[in-house]
Amino acid sequence: MAREIVLDTETTGFDPKTGDRLIEVGCIEIDDLLPTGRTFHRFVNPERLIPPDATRVHGITDDKVKDAPKFAAIVHDLVEFIGDAPIIAHNAQFDRNFIDYEFGLCRHGLYEEARWIDTLKLAQTRFPGMPNSLDALCKRFKVSLTDRTFHGALIDARLLAEVYLELRGGKERRLDLSTARTVASTAVMATAGGHGARPRPLAPRSTEAERETHLAFLRGTLKDHSLWQAYGLEVGAA
């Protein structure tokens, strides 16, 4: 696996062709299906009012973005963060429509379709006929939603990164790699004829008095029938 970017957007509505605009974008960088800790997050001034219905979904008000930069002012930072990585989004066509529209206004080249990975399609293939919204997948995979009061681009990107890991079988794959390392390590030790760093022989855990009592028992009770004689050892030998 290579570097990938999980992306989510919040908008004023459903369709940029009818005047809706992007107002928030959040990205999570993952490498080999694990978050690296690098993120990208910006609020964007949409240059229009945000409908109340949209605010009820994501909690973003006109006051919150009135002093935010316009998309043209953040586009280069966004493009630099994404780099040449594949872009993962849930219902990716929605996010792609808005990114393409904003890129077009900035006269920036568009990302080709092949770079977009749609987790909704991945989920529909794995769970046909079942609810496959991000919320439904989080519940199915036991991804906590406790920190999410409203939809938010960076919050949803974090949730989606966890869901994407599950959809790709990341936990099982890491387990397999861990098992492989354990088997390889065991094979090396077996070849070397050792048991790692453990001392051989192990240090005695009995006290000297306990050992003397045991030897007295063997001498006085077992006499010629000591188990140790089968190994050519005398009772009480060092």
Rank of each mutant, 00 (worst) to 15 (best):
A203E: 11
H90A: 10
M189S: 09
P52V: 07
D156E: 04
A180R: 13
A216E: 15
F81P: 05
Q229N: 14
A187Q: 10
S226K: 08
V235C: 10
A157T: 00
L137C: 10
G37E: 13
Q93P: 00
K64Y: 04
A203N: 07
L120M: 13
R211Q: 14
G104I: 00
L233Y: 12
R140E: 02
D135W: 00
Y111V: 01
S133V: 02
L134T: 14
F43Q: 02
F43T: 00
S185Q: 14
A54Y: 01
N91H: 15
T61G: 12
G193R: 03
Y164N: 12
E80M: 07
E80L: 07
K70L: 07
G196M: 00
G26M: 07
H151W: 02
A238P: 06
V75F: 08
L215C: 12
H195R: 11
M189C: 08
D63H: 07
K171Q: 14
T182D: 11
A136F: 03
T18Y: 09
A54G: 10
V163D: 01
R115F: 01
T213L: 14
L175F: 10
D84S: 12
V6H: 10
C138F: 00
F14C: 11
F94A: 07
L145V: 05
Y164H: 15
A85H: 02
L165D: 15
R38T: 06
T207K: 09
T146V: 10
Q93I: 11
S206G: 03
H151D: 07
T191W: 07
L167R: 08
D100T: 03
E112H: 00
H90S: 12
N97G: 01
